[in-house]
Design a protein around this nucleic acid. Structure first.
Lengths: 108, 108
DNA sequence: CTCGAAGTACGATCCAGATCAAACTTACCA
DNA sequence: TGGTAAGTTTGATCTGGATCGTACTTCGAG
């Protein structure tokens, strides 16, 4: 269902604030986004974004993040991965990502 | 348990990002915060902050918001109410509240 | 053409937390 | 003094969604 290498213009729109909060409220997903945001290119292969987690559970979370318009499924080198949709998010909810990542970085 | 008219310095600290997201991810609570943020004084009696909801459910949500450090229980005129802890929130996660409220306002 | 590694699909399980009803507490006011 | 309006407490119920195991699919490497 993730439809690998989706063209940027067929990506789902960024979800409403309400839904974004629900999606980001899960510790696993927040960590995935945090790790992506830390990367300079804001992209990474799937398995770099979690640990100690069943693969099917990871897939589940990726699907949710993609559907909410937060991640863009892409090929990263040889393997599948995701890119953080910074610009789209910034347009939908300006300042949200920066606020969250900033505070996370600050909290140890 | 809300301990009415708590002194500002015995309020619980603002929760970590993770927990804040969990707390704000509920539609009922987000709406409560939205309404408070809309008020000029950022405070209002309990019953102004929700509708079509059982009172005990409302109490439940208020308790969670207070424990997360988002609301401050106060007397508003004759009746009980809450004040939004803008400054504390801004200090804990700068920009978060503004980002959320801005986007909510924009979404109609 | 296999093999293996990486991801996905599906079904089953399990639990935090959202909700409500009912009984109780407060406090104001007539 | 009630009476009533507003919140709280408690206990019970129910459901969304997080998790896992297993089986299936892809795809690159040898």
């Amino acid at each position: 269902m993730p439809a690998w290498e989706v063209l940027p213009d067929q990506l789902p729109p960024v979800a409403a604030v309400q839904k974004l909060l629900r999606v980001l409220a899960d510790p696993v997903r927040l960590e995935m986004v945090r790790r992506l945001a830390a990367h300079p290119a804001a992209e990474a292969p799937c398995s770099d974004l979690y640990d100690g987690l069943n693969k099917s559970t990871a897939t589940h979370h990726f699907k949710i993040l993609v559907e909410a318009g937060i991640l863009h499924p892409v090929m990263v080198g040889p393997s599948r991965g995701h890119r953080l949709r910074r610009a789209s998010l910034q347009e939908a909810v300006p300042g949200l990502l920066d606020a969250l990542m900033g505070a996370l970085a600050r909290e140890t």
